[in-house]
Design a protein around this nucleic acid. Structure first.
Lengths: 133, 133
DNA sequence: CTGACTGCAAACGTTTTGCACGGTA
DNA sequence: TACCGTGCAAAACGTTTGCAGTCAG
């Protein structure tokens, strides 16, 4: 189990046992929904409250440690902030994987043609993953 | 005011006055949130209920007349289903415009490299539009 | 030791449901 | 006329808040 104590402190968050469990679960899953996270953390911290999950998710988002990923036809999932990337969502097994897709060319084109400055791009490609075929 | 009577019937929905007003408002706005839609339709149908708005949005989504557009840091908006396209979201004025971005090349690449069959792609580019600069 | 965090319960906002009535086809 | 749709009120759901007790730094 990876130790996120310093990561949390660097983001101005105290490293409580509950919080370490939460961030670790998110890390291990890669992408996780609130419900799954609650279920998962409850295994090790049976007394944890859903309110604590929400408070922590929000605190970590505010402190730029986590971000929400909105998905078509699905509940949002949360992931640790890392380099820009897109998501592949398998509509059969619901698995999500990160992919590095170059959107710079597209952003540049939009900037030039429409005079719209792109600051952020969110791309989700939905379909069937190789394991589900 | 465009007449959506036949469009509704073709999607197995009765053309009630409320429904015509709802679909027309969505059409005129291009992209609209539930709240704005309720507010807008209430101007012409002061007796309309929020429940009716929800029931209709859901019915039209189920009958493939509408689709939800999930946006980063914003409430979802709804639009009439049309040809595949992406969205530009201005984070200053909150305006949304459709853009035709070719994602086929990307989808093909993903298919070949990762053996993932892309069926749908959702792209939102957020930034500053030309009017807000 | 102090401010931040936890867990509980209550509150809140959003969306859905049940039902009686009314309107479309 | 039969069924679908509307509007109201209540219920359900997901998320946030307030507070008292606890813990990390």
């Amino acid at each position: 189990m990876k130790d996120f104590t310093n990561t949390l402190r660097e983001h101005n968050l105290k490293a409580t046992p509950q919080r370490l469990e939460i961030i670790n679960a998110i890390y291990e899953y890669g992408h996780i929904s609130i419900d799954k996270l609650y279920e998962e953390v409850k295994n090790k911290f049976s007394s944890i409250s859903l309110a604590t999950i929400y408070k922590n998710i929000n605190a970590m988002i505010e402190n730029l440690l986590l971000e929400e990923v909105k998905l078509p036809n699905e509940k949002s999932v949360y992931e640790i902030i890392k380099d820009k990337h897109s998501h592949l969502l398998c509509t059969k097994c619901n698995n999500i994987v990160d992919v590095d897709i170059a959107l710079n060319t597209i952003s540049k084109e939009i900037s030039e043609k429409l005079n719209f400055t792109v600051q952020q791009s969110d791309l989700v490609l939905s379909g069937i993953c190789k394991d589900c075929k």
